[in-house]
Design a protein around this nucleic acid. Sequence first.
DNA 1: GTCCACTATTTTGTATACAAAATCGTTTGT
DNA 2: ACAAACGATTTTGTATACAAAATAGTGGAC
Lengths: 221, 221
Amino acid sequence: MAKDSAKGATEARISTAQRIEIALLEDIAIGALEPGQRLEEVNIAARFDASRTPVREAFSRLTAQGILVQGERRGVFVAQYSREELSQIFEAMHEIEAACARIASQRLNLLTRAEILSAQAECIAAAESGDRAAYLRANEAFHQAIYDATGNPYMAEIASEFRRRTGPFRAKKFARREDLIASAKSHQALIDDIFSEDSLTAAQGMRAHMTASFMQALKAN
Amino acid sequence: MAKDSAKGATEARISTAQRIEIALLEDIAIGALEPGQRLEEVNIAARFDASRTPVREAFSRLTAQGILVQGERRGVFVAQYSREELSQIFEAMHEIEAACARIASQRLNLLTRAEILSAQAECIAAAESGDRAAYLRANEAFHQAIYDATGNPYMAEIASEFRRRTGPFRAKKFARREDLIASAKSHQALIDDIFSEDSLTAAQGMRAHMTASFMQALKAN
DNA sequence: GTCCACTATTTTGTATACAAAATCGTTTGT
DNA sequence: ACAAACGATTTTGTATACAAAATAGTGGAC
């Protein structure tokens, strides 16, 4: 009965394969694993003190999501994109984010407004203290709050997927404290557009935000 | 040198896991595997005369794509959606398809126009002969041709993914020959809108097409 | 007769073993 | 000296074995 009441509420028992998948995702998001880097099954297995089997399962799932790619020859690699490919991925993400903003603006309620504002407050706090890692987390939470405000988990999921794929490239642009503050300020304008509840304004606000984000990502990559 | 010149041009050597993944996808698209149906590793392994290992790999990739879902208890199941969930998936798909149509309308060229028209010709032929399986294939090729016309493989990929996920639910609506002909006719209007090269017209045309598609899917499910 | 508990069976998750394919290095021939 | 080919080593793909968890089935007690 009280078997997992002590632990986090909904924390189900986690398999080794899932643990590896989550850890690899985190490493890629943080930048510990860089785009283009090769991942060998045996290395990863050793690192997690597991056999190759769960590692292969994690690789399968991550390649299916486009986070990892199989090279033409041996090995699995952290996905790496040329300038051209990056532009295409950002274009796709930009379309989805704009759709999310538009839908969210039409369905805002007290809760979703509060959660967007709350996430933004964390962004500002992290930006002012110059805590890069905290800002990266808060920034993701902010965008996630917008996705959630659509009330559509499928839209939210694909938007998140694109964020995971572009994470390593966006992360590089947050080098200095001013970058964080500028980003947080950009959020404020975006919030105004979405909270206007005018869907066109919301979508255009998000397009502007994403275009700026891509410009900076291009500079940093 | 001539090691695979006899076979299909780009057909690389395929692993058992990939073979199983493709076959399962096909079965789900066709309807041989119905939403909600449970898949047991040993059964599938026996069917493909393989061990559980490649089956598990295929399951991993398919669950990562949302084609299969892990039940809360045992087993992996073909994804099944409630009326509400189906509406959310179609909403998301509808947004992405509209974005594809808009972008495609801006980037049309001789080749992409030709391929859209060619796919539509196949749709008409299949519809008139009342060949349901052929129409399903041609219909997918038609939409794929529009995705490809965006020139953005990432947009194309997510659009395809949603099509795969909704395949079983859309397939049911093509019961009679008239359904096929009506669908092909609807394509014609859509082509006109996209070929207008007015992005707003193209997006609205696709929205109309998708809305109609969802209405029929709802009736059939 | 119903409910609970205990056991048995099924099923999943992980490890290991083995075979095949590919890369790398060395050697040999021209 | 350079190229080609052969062999050795690494790495992947698949099979099998084993352990743990969950469900189902059976029996017993009230």
